[in-house]
Structures are given as C-alpha cells and as structure tokens.
Amino acid sequence: MTVAIVDYGSGNLRSAAKAFQHEAAGRKVLVTGRAEDLARADHIVLPGVGSFGDCARGLRALAGMMEALQENVVRRAKPFLGICVGMQLMATRGVEHGIHEGLGWIHGEVVPLEPDTGAGDHRLKVPHMGWNELTIGDPAHPIFAGLAPGAHAYFVHGYRFAAADAASVLAEVSHGGPVTAAIGRDNMVGTQFHPEKSQAVGLSLIANFLAWRP
C-alpha cells in the first residue's frame, strides 16, 4: 500500500509527509513529483500552501501530472485528499491574483474571504488563522469517523471555496458567515484546514482517509 503526496514545489511538504507517516500503519508514504508514481499509489494527497495561481502553475509544470491526476482520481477512483490550496485546486477556477483554472472536480470558485464583521466587538481578521470548530454536514462520511461534535481544526487561508452545489460541502466553519471547511464527492475529499497541523483531530482524520475504501 502506497500513499502518494504530490510534490509540486509548494511550501511545507515535510509536516504533511510526517503526519501521514505517523498514521501510515505500514503503508509507504511517497513524496513525489513524478506523474507515473500515481499509477502505483493507492491513496493520493495534494497539499498546497501559497496562492491558487502559483500552485496551479506548479502542478501544471510537472510533466503529465494533470493527466495522471485525472486518470487515477477521476477514472480509476482512487481515494484523494486535497489540503488547503490543494483542496481549492479541486474547484472549477480560482480568482486569486487573476483567474486560474482548477482541476474542475467540484463545481465552484475560490473567492476572497470577506467576513461580515457584524456587531462583533472587534474586527474579524483575514487570513482566517487559527483553530475553528467544524460543523460537519455529513457526519456519516467515513472521513469524519470518531470526531467529537465541535472538534477544532487549524485553518490558515484568505480565500474560500464557494461551491456551486451545496451537496458537495461536507463541513463548514463560521468566520463572519459560513466558510467551506471540507468538500467532497465520490472518492474525493478536500479540507480547507490542515489535518497535519490539527493535532489529534487532524491525525484521526488522516487515519480515516487512509482507511477509506470509497
């Protein structure tokens, strides 16, 4: 069993790889930028920090990677997890510093986070940075198995996934209005938060993903 973590030059892969190794239970964790490695992976993870456009460019710069993702995630239906910008890349497009095409797996756009400050005693900040409690819309989803109600996850982002179809939103958080925390369909999920930085909650979500047989 092999977990492939796609390395396209985006930021901090080390903590993601370490967290997956922690929960790997004998699986091989392969950090790779080679498209052909996806063929022999059982689970595929797309991390990402930075801007949507940079990440989309980085991914496209890897020979054959877009095709390999389509082949292995869409056609061969391998379990897929996108994290932060990796989750946002699942969208139709992103509008951060220009309009950039995403993978187009979940209909929607990645748009600036503009919290409604309302009557709060001080302003809600952007980036949305820190721990926020998840409102899980689909508690039966295997990825959320064993998570206590009100579990917290760690977020750092200034843009949000505006899903075209509410059914693809698996979890939300509140930051001056509802913000998509997790999306998914079929064999794919994406988390706006960082499971690899979310202590016990994050590690159990990673374990759930690795045990997932959609």
Binding site: G11, N12, R14, S15, K18, V156, K197
Partner: peptide, 29 residues
C-alpha cells in the same frame, strides 16, 4: 516537525528568502 502536529512559527535571524525556504523545508509553518 517529526513529532508535533501543530503549527510552528520560527523567528530570529531570518534575513533572506533562502533562510525562509530552509526553515519551511525543515518543517516550520
């Protein structure tokens, strides 16, 4: 980064892009 799955900020003596890259690659968030 190998043992703690929580956000880590590192500061002090960060002078250039290469310093940042090294810290992020080592596991700083």
């Amino acid at each position: 980064a190998e043992q703690c799955f929580m956000p880590l900020t590192v500061g002090g003596g960060v002078r250039n892009v290469d310093d940042i890259r090294k810290l992020l690659l080592a596991g700083a968030d």
